[in-house]
Simulated scan of single mutants.
Amino acid sequence: MTRQSISFTQPNDEWLKSQVDNNEYSSKSELVNDLIRQARKQQRQIDWISSKLEKAEKSGFTNDTKEQILAESKSLLNG
């Protein structure tokens, strides 16, 4: 694992400490890594939606219904 040194604002540091103190995470590092994983997952979903929209715009239509697109988006969030 790569070791980094980062600074937090006081409110963010206090929040991180509270999560560790509440036994939600064993360390700030674990929490920050989890937040980054969540952000990466969210970015994959955003990228997927953007590509679907771009494809639909270029073709002038799509065979997928709005409900299908939303369902697939939700499955990516949960998967």
Results as ranks from 00 to 15, higher is better:
Tyr25Ile: 04
Ile69Tyr: 08
Ser50Val: 05
Glu67Ser: 11
Lys28Arg: 15
Ser29Glu: 12
Asn33Glu: 14
Trp48Asn: 01
Leu77Met: 05
Arg40Cys: 07
Leu53Ala: 11
Trp48Asp: 01
Lys28Val: 10
Glu14Leu: 12
Asn63Trp: 09
Glu54Leu: 11
Ser50Leu: 10
Glu54Ala: 13
Glu72Val: 00
Val20Gly: 03
Ile6Val: 13
Leu77Gly: 02
Ala71Pro: 01
Leu77Tyr: 08
Asp13Pro: 00
Leu35Phe: 12
Ser7Arg: 14
Glu57Trp: 09
Gln38Pro: 01
Ala71Gln: 10
Thr62Lys: 10
Lys28Met: 11
Lys28Phe: 04
Asp64Thr: 07
Leu70Ser: 05
Ala56Lys: 12
Gln43Cys: 02
Gln45Ala: 09
Asn23Phe: 11
Arg44Thr: 04
Lys41Gln: 08
Asn22His: 11
Lys66Asp: 06
Ile69Met: 13
Ser27His: 11
Asn33Pro: 02
Lys17Phe: 03
Ser29Gly: 14
Gln19Pro: 00
Ser51Ile: 03
Glu30Val: 06
Lys58Glu: 08
Gly60Leu: 05
Gln10Asp: 13
Leu53Gly: 03
Met1His: 12
Thr65His: 03
Ser29Phe: 07
Gln45Leu: 10
Lys74Gln: 03
Asn22Tyr: 09
Leu53His: 13
Ser73Gly: 03
Gln4Thr: 08
Lys52Trp: 08
Glu14Met: 08
Ala56Asp: 04
Arg37Asn: 10
Ala39Gly: 09
Leu76Asp: 00
Asn12Ala: 10
Asp13His: 11
Glu14Ala: 13
Ser5Asp: 02
Ala56Trp: 10
Trp15Ser: 04
Glu57Met: 13
Asp34Arg: 11
Asp64Asn: 12
Tyr25Asn: 05
Ser73Ala: 15
Lys74Ser: 00
Trp15Ile: 01
Lys17Met: 06
Asn63Arg: 13
Ala71Cys: 01
Phe61Pro: 01
Ala71Trp: 04
Gln68Cys: 00
Ser59His: 14
Leu53Gln: 13
Arg44Lys: 14
Ser73Trp: 12
Gly60Ala: 06
Gln4Leu: 13
Asn78Cys: 00
Leu31Tyr: 14
Leu77Ala: 03
Ser73Ile: 00
Lys28Pro: 01
Asp64Cys: 07
Asp47Val: 02
Lys66Met: 07
Trp15Thr: 05
Ser51Met: 12
Asn78Asp: 03
Lys52Val: 04
Ala71Gly: 15
Gln42Trp: 08
Phe61Gly: 01
